[in-house]
Amino acid sequence: MSETADPPVLHARALRKEYGKGEGLVRAVDGVDLDIRAGETVAIMGPSGCGKSTLLHLLGGLDRPSGGEVLLNGRRIDNLSEKALARMRRTDVSYVFQSFHLMEELTAVENVELSALLAGCSPRTARRRAEELLDQLGLAGRSKFLPSALSGGQRQRVAVARALSNEPLVVLADEPTGNLDSAATLDVLQLFDELHEYGQTLVIVTHDARIAATADRMFSMRDGVLIDETRLTGGTNGKLGALVGLED
């Protein structure tokens, strides 16, 4: 690997994903280059169907690219076997989904500890860690609740706790606020902001400007291509008054 001080945690080069053949060929991801550094929050925005979810699946090894390469912490993952990918997902990458994807028959804490159990943690360690995470995410009193008894925002918090339970290198979030009302969205925003402060590397795919605005960098995606990179830090230079016309 290169000798740079800060190598990217996640690196994609000329990444492509195609579906179908001939006339029906769809280039969902069409040559994407992306570097994500440790501790960074990166948002990928774009209209629905632009290929951003597919890109996220490729980055986490949930789907296989048609071409190009993905490196996680310097290691090629696009050519790993399904089994090796699964093992990688246990510890290195985790997902947060739009529709939460919690197991309906498991309580909050059982949902959270599941990834740790899959990774081979002892039941006791897994349970303790899950309880801690739920505590930290403000769900201490609800660890025995079934998902159906939780609000949308709380469910997404449980899903985030699950994603964090194996201390992954990267958390990949797919429209994490897509199914939430504005209060719950704010809740999740705050959560992601805390994760960011804590130094968690985050990739968020969204079409919600609010959640994209929490990122350090934002990419626009259109027709399978990243077209625009924005560094979002330093917008008003601290002069909030300008936002309401108090300063010019």
Partner: peptide, 12 residues
């Protein structure tokens, strides 16, 4: 958009 997002981030 870039500009608006920066502002949104700060306001948020």
């Amino acid at each position: 958009r870039r500009e608006l997002l920066r502002r949104l981030r700060d306001a948020q």
